[in-house]
């Protein structure tokens, strides 16, 4: 995001008063092996899903799985915030979900491979207790079962 001083007063206040979770530290996991041997998956908060899958609703703390071979034309966004510009996403899903860029890195041998599925939550959540206690850990277990070593987390 541009620096706060470049936003309108209303947008700046919205961000400064947003109840972001405050943590003292983070559970840190080291990379288990060089990236060229790792399997990577995207976890996005862009509210994306396969067309025909259940759209996200306001305050929705569930997730959607997106098979990694889903064509970009079949991915849609139902994020319930209009605080971001949708036009980049209309043009190019890679703006938040860089699946084509990652396929290129895999083809070049810079990343070992992609997990069988990526996952999407919806961002701009003012209440995220269920993601923290239930749906977030569930996605972590699925990623682990799918042999994923690295998660790339992207916003919109």
């Amino acid at each position: 995001m541009p620096r706060l001083d470049r936003l309108s007063q209303i947008a700046r206040n919205n961000l400064l008063t947003f109840p972001a979770q405050v943590n003292e530290t983070a559970p840190f996991v080291r990379l288990p092996k060089p990236l060229e041997g790792c399997r990577l998956a995207i976890v996005t908060t862009a509210g994306l899903h396969v067309r025909g899958d259940r759209p996200f609703a306001p305050g929705d703390q569930t997730y959607r799985a997106i098979p990694s071979d889903t064509p970009a034309v079949d991915i849609v966004q139902s994020h319930t915030s209009i605080g971001f510009d949708r036009v980049p996403m209309l043009r190019d899903v890679n703006i938040s979900f860089p699946i084509d860029r990652l396929r290129e890195l895999v083809a070049r041998g810079e990343v070992g491979g992609l997990g069988s599925r990526s996952y999407s939550f919806m961002g701009a959540q003012r209440e995220a207790a269920r993601i923290e206690s239930e749906t977030g850990p569930e996605v972590a277990r699925l990623l682990r079962d799918e042999g994923v070593d690295v998660a790339l987390i992207t916003p919109t």
Partner: peptide, 10 residues
């Protein structure tokens, strides 16, 4: 980048 442009430019 602006909101909606996480990876830069479409």
């Amino acid at each position: 980048f602006p909101f909606g442009h996480a990876l830069g430019r479409p």
